[in-house]
């Protein structure tokens, strides 16, 4: 890996994680440059979710370390990671259907007056401004999130993370279960964020073609370790597909023999 540690906002070094007898991650090395969009792809069970949950402070690694801005950090909780600027947009978006858009935008970070009363007027105004600023279009910040489309919900979850001053954004399968139009909306949002250069983004995804559209670099996670790291311009959907298929073939041959867990 190339040096210049200073410009990497996030580094994962030799991270391993086991759950009982199952080794989820064996030895992961990954870096995310300032303002970079990195795609992390891999098949089901490759360890994508585990790696993401380690970076966002949900799991602690059994071995290895994580560096933020070149400083080693021990992430104690999701809140702790968030205070360092690492935020996650989960697949389920962590939105509450029953609440309005503006309440969701500020969930658990609500501005208050007199210590505990919600400052709804301020939330409404800031949410409206911020969503307009990010080019997210919804009927009104007053509507319940349940009334929005999948793409709009995703956009709100992303906008929320960006708003909360996060510098490292983890997007977990942002295009899963989303139509072509909705997916395009999200990719546009990622492009906008990249153009602003305020956040570095790690996208965890299945869909290679769409990921390649917005990522600067692609990493492939296989069997708990990063097996491939290339700039997007220097790779192709074909190459990535071949790698995964080759892995599948090898695994099938392997399981024909006595090995196989």
């Amino acid at each position: 890996m190339d040096g210049d540690t200073k410009r990497d906002v996030l580094r994962v070094e030799n991270v391993a994680k086991r759950f009982g007898a199952v080794t989820a991650l064996s030895d992961v090395n990954l870096r995310l440059g300032a303002g970079e969009v990195l795609g992390l792809i891999g098949d089901n069970g490759a360890g994508k979710s585990t790696l993401m949950k380690i970076i966002c402070g949900f799991h602690r690694p059994d071995a290895g370390r994580i560096l933020v801005d070149g400083e080693p950090v021990e992430l104690k909780s999701v809140d702790h990671a968030r205070s360092l600027g690492i935020d996650t947009v989960y697949q389920d978006l962590a939105l509450v259907n029953e609440l309005s858009v503006y309440h969701n935008m500020f969930l658990n970070r609500e501005p208050v007056f007199l210590g505990r009363f919600l400052d709804n007027r301020k939330m409404r105004r800031l949410a409206r401004e911020h969503l307009a600023d990010m080019g997210v279009r919804i009927p009104s910040v007053d509507v319940q999130v349940a009334q929005l489309s999948g793409g709009q919900r995703q956009a709100i979850a992303v906008a929320r993370s960006v708003y909360s001053q996060s510098r490292i954004l983890l997007l977990d399968e942002p295009l899963a279960a989303m139509g072509a139009k909705e997916g395009a909306l999200i990719l546009d949002l990622v492009r906008d964020l990249k153009a602003r250069g305020e956040v570095s983004i790690l996208i965890i995804a299945h869909n290679y073609a769409q990921v390649l559209e917005v990522c600067d670099r692609v990493n492939l996670l296989q069997h708990g370790t990063i097996t491939f790291d290339k700039e997007t311009a220097k790779t192709s959907v074909q190459e990535l597909t071949d790698l995964v298929v080759a892995e599948y073939r090898a695994a099938r041959q392997g399981s024909a023999g006595p090995a196989g867990q």
Binding site: D79, D92, L93, A94, E98, L99, L107
Partner: peptide
């Protein structure tokens, strides 16, 4: 209040509420 909002969040989307911290 925040307490009320979080009460709704916890009942509406338990996982999401805890993911929000």
């Amino acid at each position: 209040t925040r307490w009320g909002l979080h009460t709704i969040a916890v009942g509406g989307n338990p996982l999401g509420a805890s993911e929000s911290g």
